[in-house]
């Protein structure tokens, strides 16, 4: 069992937990993820590592409620446990492998959309701890969905916050900010790292291609085992099929086939909807989900 030592609700749909997973905390690096399973009947859910403490063995994970399993997890409190936490999985971010002197010559721009702030944070923090100040664009649909702003401000070079509806700081999409920084303010970036909803990453990569900025994205497709065994997470990158769990999750954003990846994310939408219905109705559930047979 993996005990929860901190549980916070960040927004209506986004929750943060510290969980004790000593082996993960000891060996993980920015860019990697864990697979979490709540209990015997739970799904294996891939979640980003948002932070880690090598001394205490704590790993910080952030989850957005999208299905029945994540809704159950959202109810967990300090002292509760996950039955299983596996990891770290995936390849660490590219920059953790670049010699520091070379890395210090590069200017990084991070673009974080919504819950994408969680995987961006440890990357910016790692760079900050190695003496590199990266710029960060933090965006969300509205003010309530902006997460980790203060934490990010503490480790970022410049932080630019934006909301789609203008309810906080400024009105505009993350792509508007990136275009403004490069074209109006004349900033130069060697690398862009964009993490957020698939549609956001698609449009950031279209823009950075136009601006000639190499761009890395982090994908979170459907996975089962997360160790390369099942191939559910396959994604087309250039002319090759890659497995996001072992070849990724980070890829060259200019080569990713986002349209295919977005379609693949929809694969279990119907099942998820039914499972949520069943969960929400609880004991009063008596059919209509298409699963339980109660409506027959």
């Amino acid at each position: 069992m993996y005990q929860i030592t901190r549980a916070e609700k960040l927004t209506d749909q986004i929750y943060l937990f510290d969980v004790t997973a000593t082996r993960v905390a000891k060996s993980c690096l920015p860019g990697q993820f864990v697979i979490v399973k709540l209990d015997e009947t739970g799904e294996r859910i891939p979640l980003t590592i948002c932070d880690y403490n090598r001394e205490t063995g704590a790993v910080t994970i952030v989850l957005q409620t999208v299905g029945a399993s994540t809704m159950k997890m959202a109810k967990l409190k300090v002292g509760d446990s996950f039955m299983d936490v596996t990891g770290p999985l995936g390849v660490p971010s590219e920059f953790t492998n670049i010699p520091l002197e070379e890395l210090k010559q590069k200017k990084y721009l991070f673009v974080a959309g919504g819950v994408g702030s969680a995987p961006v944070y440890p990357q910016v923090k790692w760079l900050h701890e190695h003496g590199i100040e990266a710029d960060v664009v933090l965006g969300a649909r509205n003010k309530d969905l902006i997460i980790l702003e203060e934490q990010m401000r503490a480790v970022a070079g410049n932080l630019y916050v934006t909301t789609d509806d203008g309810s906080y700081v400024r009105k505009g999409l993350v792509t508007d900010v990136v275009r403004d920084l490069v074209e109006e303010q004349g900033k130069h970036y060697d690398v862009c790292v964009a993490i957020g909803p698939m549609i956001m990453m698609k449009f950031v990569t279209l823009l950075t291609k136009e601006l000639h900025i190499p761009t890395i994205v982090s994908l979170n497709p459907i996975m089962v085992d997360g160790t390369g065994m099942c191939g559910a997470c396959r994604v087309t990158v250039g002319d090759q099929v890659k497995f996001a769990c072992v070849d990724g999750p980070e890829f060259d954003g200019h080569l990713v086939n986002f349209d295919e990846a977005m379609k693949r994310q929809q694969m279990y939408k119907t099942y998820e909807g039914r499972a949520i219905l069943k969960l929400q109705e609880g004991d009063t559930h008596h059919g209509g989900c298409g699963n339980c047979g109660g409506d027959k």
Binding site: G228, M229, C230, G231, A232, R234, V235, T236, V241, F243, V246, E260, K263, R264, Q266, M267
Partner: peptide, 17 residues
């Protein structure tokens, strides 16, 4: 890691290893 054939349409929804 599971092998696939490399034929068109293999990443469609409903194709599994």
């Amino acid at each position: 890691l599971p092998k696939f054939m490399g034929i068109p349409g293999e990443n469609a929804n409903g194709v599994f290893s």
